[in-house]
């Protein structure tokens, strides 16, 4: 009898401890579509990249047991709301419209400082007048699009939106758009690869702090205020202790956090 009860107690403790371990686990959703230099799969099938290292640093700082969970971008919000994942950290722009559906942490990098890229043989300025009559390509639902709709659309011939930066870049190379506007990070990686021969930076657009301050944050369920606090504190923590800059230096030669 005694042995049995001891065994039962042990089993109960074991179950409880595994349950608790699971409860503490935070599933971090990232888009399954690789997007270097932020996250991509290396030859052995591990996720690597700037954002992966930042996620690990944030989780370590907040003492969270994080599990990377790749989810197709199109299904990432249903996954969050149905609790298959607990937080999305996948280059998600913080916009006013999205805030009505999910909650965001503070930004962990900036997607602003929007840069205009165009073909080398065409001169243009990164101003509404300089882009007059041009077709400008842009990724849909980013703050860059909010900015372009507000400041540039009236002077453009067309503001063409793309589901991914890849498609916009392809059309820029193919001459279907006259210019492309994106964050310095996306521009940097494009001009180091596919856009090396065709295109160059034409300049940065004027600042609009209201739009540009938003940046990219972690997406959370609205009821998870506690997790949000932990992540915000961790972002501040790795900014303060130099971990953030240490990781960033490996990937970029400029400040991706912004002001």
């Amino acid at each position: 009898m005694n042995v049995v009860s001891k065994l039962l107690t042990a089993a109960a403790i074991f179950c409880a401890s595994t349950l608790m371990a699971q409860a503490d686990q935070v599933k971090v959703g990232i888009a399954a579509e690789p997007s270097p230099p932020f996250f991509s799969l290396d030859a052995s099938g591990h996720w690597v990249g700037w954002e992966i290292e930042i996620i690990n640093a944030i989780c370590a700082e907040a003492k969270l047991d994080c599990v990377l969970t790749p989810v197709a971008w199109d299904g990432i919000i249903p996954s969050l709301t149905s609790k298959k994942i607990d937080v999305i950290m996948s280059g998600m722009s913080i916009t006013e419209k999205r805030k009505k559906t999910i909650d965001f942490s503070d930004k962990y990098f900036s997607d602003s400082g929007y840069t205009i890229v165009g073909p080398k043989d065409v001169t243009m300025d990164a101003t509404p007048e300089g882009l007059k009559g041009k077709i400008l390509g842009i990724q849909v639902s980013t703050n860059a699009e909010v900015y372009a709709s507000k400041h540039l659309k009236n002077s453009l011939a067309e503001l063409k939106t793309y589901q991914t930066q890849d498609e916009a870049q392809q059309d820029l190379v193919a001459g279907r758009i006259d210019a492309w506007m994106a964050s310095p990070i996306a521009v940097d990686s494009f001009l180091k690869t596919g856009g090396k021969t065709c295109c160059e930076i034409k300049g940065k657009v004027a600042n609009d702090p209201k739009i540009m301050a938003a940046g990219v944050g972690a997406g959370l369920r609205k009821e998870d205020a506690q997790l949000k606090e932990k992540i915000n504190a961790a972002i501040r923590g790795i900014r303060a202790n130099g971990k953030y800059n240490e990781i960033t230096k490996k990937y970029f030669d400029f400040d991706v956090y912004g002001e």
Binding site: V140, Y162, Q163
Partner: peptide, 20 residues
Amino acid sequence: ITVVDLYAVALRVRQDTFVI
């Protein structure tokens, strides 16, 4: 291929607002 038809608008609403 970037033609904005009815389906493209629905996609866009989803991307903009995360209302699925």
